[in-house]
Amino acid sequence: MNENVTVREVMEREFVGVSESDGVLETSELLLREEADLAVVLRGSEPVGVVTDRDVLAHLVSDGDPSGATVEDVMTESVPTVAAEETLPEARDRMSSWSTSWLVVSDGGEPAGIVTEHDILATSALGSEATAQEAMGQTASQTVADEVAAAGATATAGQTIPDEPFDDQGICEQCGSLARNLAAFNGQLLCDDCRDI
């Protein structure tokens, strides 16, 4: 895992926000429409709880009638948070201590986004791939150099052994194309074209 990557670089900046007085049915519809796992319950700009699909299901099982229920009736009042400047290992440890797969990202006391296990694992996997590619590139270059030396050949002045041409490329998570200059944007690694959309 890249130890220096901050939560701000990988978090999802868009999240579902609701108020305590919102209805459970409307909130559930909003979660489905937005394909979100949770809604942050806000009192002004202060997060005071969360509503997950599990909270709604628990209310249905215990009470059975969601028509008159409000978000305040079903929400979980504890909000696991992480500062935007904290590193991914710190966020992973915070998730582990809260036994959750997501954290609300706080920036200056206000919610700035959500970071999930998926965001952390995707960054970790990309970091591992880059390290493996670097090691493979060095090994391949060394093997070619060893073969040249073993054959008794010498390189003429100005001649170099070519680097691997694809070492600095990756797959854009939006369009799936092979691209240079991928950057984290809304929790995804995107190429220049997809970041402009």
Results as ranks from 00 to 15, higher is better:
Arg8Gly: 03
Met11Gln: 08
Asp22His: 15
Thr27Ile: 09
Ser28His: 07
Leu30Tyr: 08
Leu31Tyr: 09
Arg33Ser: 05
Glu34Met: 12
Glu35Ile: 01
Asp37Ala: 11
Ala39Lys: 09
Arg43Pro: 00
Ser45Leu: 09
Glu46Arg: 15
Glu46Gly: 02
Pro47Phe: 11
Pro47Lys: 09
Val51Pro: 11
Val51Ala: 10
Thr52Phe: 04
Asp55Cys: 05
Val56Pro: 02
Leu60Trp: 08
Ala69Leu: 10
Val71Ile: 13
Glu72Ile: 02
Asp73Glu: 12
Thr76Gln: 11
Glu77Pro: 00
Val79Ala: 09
Pro80Leu: 05
Val82Thr: 13
Ala83Pro: 01
Thr87Arg: 14
Thr87Pro: 03
Leu88Thr: 02
Ala91Gln: 06
Ala91Pro: 09
Arg92Lys: 12
Ser96Gln: 12
Thr100Lys: 12
Thr100Asp: 03
Trp102Asn: 01
Val104Pro: 10
Val105Arg: 11
Asp107Trp: 09
Gly108Pro: 14
Gly109Leu: 02
Glu110Gly: 02
Pro111Arg: 10
Gly113Lys: 10
Ile114Gln: 05
His118Glu: 14
His118Gly: 03
Ile120Ser: 03
Leu126Asn: 04
Gly127Trp: 01
Ser128Phe: 01
Ala130Arg: 15
Ala135Ser: 07
Val148Gly: 00
Ala150Arg: 12
Ala151Arg: 04
Ala151Thr: 02
Ala151Gln: 02
Gly152Asp: 06
Thr154Leu: 03
Ala155Glu: 06
Ala157Arg: 09
Pro162Tyr: 03
Asp163Arg: 04
Phe166Gln: 05
Phe166Pro: 00
Phe166Tyr: 13
Asp167His: 06
Cys172Ile: 04
Gln174Cys: 01
Leu178Pro: 00
Leu178Arg: 12
Leu178Phe: 13
Gly187Trp: 09
Gln188Lys: 15
Asp196Leu: 13
